[in-house]
């Protein structure tokens, strides 16, 4: 049971780490807490489901590209101008939650079904120390960890990554040396929303997606990022894996109803005891 719980927890945490990465990338670079990314990601998941009967690759691409574009546009026309006018975290909280309302409403209005499951091909099963695990779940976990490594490599070794770092560390200086900071912000927001979409696609394939999943993924993504130290990518991933295990074991021991209760309770405790998260935040809210 313990091994089963660990594996389930790691996989849950792995999938959750995608929206967490989205939150971390957006917040780490723009300094804006975006609470709508879960809903935008699930909107992308619904789009993928809609086009799935045509071609799987194109369907996934449509969802991910759409989310990137939405992330880019909302940052460009809404969030960056508010930030330039001196908007604080509370204002961004309200604006991004309102954006979430819009996308949740669009899902309700456009798509014929309120709850869907994405039928992606399965990869068979793998036996780990006597526990049979779906290959697709292992793929989801590896994909999440791979994405983290790619983002870290991008950040350290590419021009784009260096401009991200410069923008997040000193905005004025970054502008002075000619970095188009508004573009950097928009790309970061686009990547964050695209990551949330990939997370939603995995979630929709392993469990299901409904109109509220976006809020759950977004809020979970955000609180897990807070526990890890918001804006701190490594902290976010460690926190996602730990929280995945907390959900898995509390589910086994106390039943599914208590999963979220225990999770949120722990997060509130962390906020009270260590407000800057497990590994500390690279920015302060």
């Amino acid at each position: 049971m313990i091994l089963n719980g660990i594996i389930t927890g790691l996989i849950m945490g792995g999938i959750l780490s995608l929206p967490v990465l989205g939150v971390a990338v957006i917040y780490g670079i723009t300094g804006i807490p975006n609470f709508a990314i879960g809903v935008i990601g699930v909107f992308g998941g619904f789009l993928t489901w809609y086009f799935l009967s045509f071609n799987m690759g194109i369907a996934i691409l449509v969802g991910v590209v759409f989310c990137f574009a939405i992330g880019y546009i909302i940052q460009r026309i809404l969030l960056t101008p508010i930030s330039e006018r001196g908007g604080d975290s509370t204002l961004f909280f309200i604006v991004t939650v309102s954006l979430g309302f819009v996308f949740e409403g669009l899902m309700r209005a456009i798509f014929p079904r309120p709850s869907i499951s994405l039928a992606l091909p399965r990869i068979g099963t793998i036996n780990i120390a006597g526990v049979t695990v779906e290959g697709f779940k292992i793929f989801a976990l590896l994909f999440a960890l791979g994405t983290l490594v790619i983002i870290r490599l991008l950040e350290e070794h590419t021009e784009i990554g260096k401009s991200w770092q410069a923008t997040s560390q000193n905005l004025k200086l970054a502008k002075l040396i000619g970095i188009k900071t508004n573009r950097v912000f928009s790309i970061a927001s686009g990547i964050g929303c695209a990551l949330a979409c990939v997370g939603a696609i995995f979630w929709g394939s392993l469990y299901n997606l409904n109109l509220m999943t976006g809020w759950d993924l977004g809020f979970l993504g955000f609180i897990i990022a807070v526990v890890g130290g918001i804006g701190n990518i490594w902290g976010g991933i460690i926190s996602a894996l730990i929280m995945g295990m907390v959900m898995s074991f509390s589910g086994y021991l106390l039943g599914g109803m208590w999963q979220s209760v225990i999770l949120y309770f722990i997060v509130i405790l962390v906020l009270i005891v260590a407000p800057k998260g497990i590994l500390g935040s690279e920015r302060s809210l």
């Binding site: 807490p33 509370t90 609180i223 807070v226 109803m257 509130i268």
Partner: peptide, 24 residues
Amino acid sequence: STSRARGFYVSMASFLLAILFPKL
């Protein structure tokens, strides 16, 4: 309990309580 934290962290703690409570 949140007096050690500042600004938005306090908002977040009470907001999380608002998410937690219906689940409880």
